[in-house]
């Protein structure tokens, strides 16, 4: 990208000036002018800011449309730091996964006084309701599901040991049990009894599958976390929960009912049947999908979703955060409980 952009007569602020100086130093530009810096909608665990800038010289010379991502004040404790997310995004980008190109990262000592990273902005929508309702997407749903299966397999091609990802905790034979113990601790903090979740966690404990070699799991690979421009995939987003794990963990999460939105009948992310998604995954040569393992992780996904929902509502119930969306999210835990009963006791309600 070449050429000399015209300088805009945009309002200046100390924060934008500091950010412009950071971008200039990071890119080797002689000067950078920020022409847009505004928060994008959505994101309860992270803030995304649209950042348009003009670069004079350096590796980014010309106009650039970027996103700055930084933790929100209400980030979850399990979220990775921006520096860690940046490293994972770089690894995924290098592995050929369709992700926004990661460009720069900064710590607390940087221009915003809090850590962030910057990536190229990708076009399209991640709106899950829109994606699962749009008839144009419906017409291409098998192809999209197959593409997503391929993308997931590419993520899973990243395996330990990796010096650049050495900050990730190891995956071991008690990883699933550790998750279950974490859910129980979280449920105890929540306080209200949830018999269905207790019953499902007891089932999980009895059915932990044998350990498989670890892969990089996205851990939130689902409809709502990828961008489509028309029917073309433009980016896999939101890597703050990534870590080493069983590849079926991501497959179960993607297929779990909590992420089907307007189309509960479409088991692959509310967009298609499982077959094209599995076919795409297997076509990348990362091994066959094992339905029994997927089932285990799908049950765990429903428990995990329920726990997230309860934690979110406790931000209002216990933390006093005035947010109606968070308050109502807790109700979704019961939807997960119905799914758990349907998975573990099919036909049990007569």
């Amino acid at each position: 990208m070449a050429g000399t952009p015209s300088r805009p007569s945009d309002e200046r602020s100390p924060r934008k000036e500091a950010l412009a100086r950071f971008l200039a130093a990071a890119s080797g530009a002689t000067s950078v002018e920020i022409t847009r810096f505004e928060r994008l909608q959505g994101g309860s665990v992270a803030e995304n800011w649209a950042l348009d800038a003009s670069f004079w010289g350096g590796s980014m010379a010309g106009e650039a449309r970027l996103v700055l991502r930084t933790p929100s004040p209400t980030r979850l404790a399990s979220s990775l730091s921006p520096a860690a997310q940046f490293a994972i995004l770089k690894a995924a980008f290098a592995a050929g996964v369709t992700v926004p190109e990661p460009l720069f990262a900064s710590g607390e000592e940087g221009p915003l006084g809090k850590p962030f990273f910057i990536m190229r902005r990708v076009e399209g929508t991640a709106g899950a309701q829109q994606i699962t309702r749009d008839p144009r997407i419906e017409a291409a749903s098998d192809r999209i599901a197959e593409t997503l299966g391929r993308e997931l397999a590419r993520i899973h091609r990243i395996r330990p040991p990796r010096a650049d990802l050495s900050f990730l905790p190891p995956y071991d034979e008690v990883a699933a049990e550790r998750q279950i113990a974490g859910f129980r601790a979280s449920l105890d903090r929540h306080g209200a009894p949830r018999p269905v979740l207790e019953w499902a966690m007891a089932w999980l404990e009895r059915h932990v599958p044998p350990l498989v070699p670890a892969v990089l799991c996205h851990h939130d690979f689902r409809t709502g976390n990828y961008m489509l421009e028309g029917t073309r995939l433009t980016g896999i987003l939101d890597w703050e929960f990534a870590g080493w794990g069983d590849p079926h963990e991501d497959i179960g999460w993607f297929c779990s009912k909590g992420w089907r939105f307007a189309r509960l009948d479409r088991e692959a992310g509310g967009i298609a049947d499982r077959a094209p998604f599995y076919r795409g995954y297997e076509a990348e040569g990362e091994g066959a999908v094992d339905p029994a393992r997927v089932r285990f992780w799908e049950v765990l996904a429903s428990v995990r979703w329920a726990m997230l929902a309860l934690e979110q509502s406790d931000r209002y119930m216990k933390g006093g955060e005035k947010n109606l969306d968070l308050a109502l999210t807790g109700r979704r835990a019961t939807e997960c409980e119905l799914e758990l009963l349907m998975l573990l006791d099919p036909g049990g309600y007569a």
Binding site: P195, R331, T334, E337, L338, L341, D345, G348
Partner: peptide, 16 residues
């Protein structure tokens, strides 16, 4: 299981 079903269906009849 009977209790779990009854409990869950009752909650959803009100909640969703």
């Amino acid at each position: 299981r009977k209790v779990l079903w009854r409990l869950t269906l009752a909650k959803l009849r009100e909640g969703n």
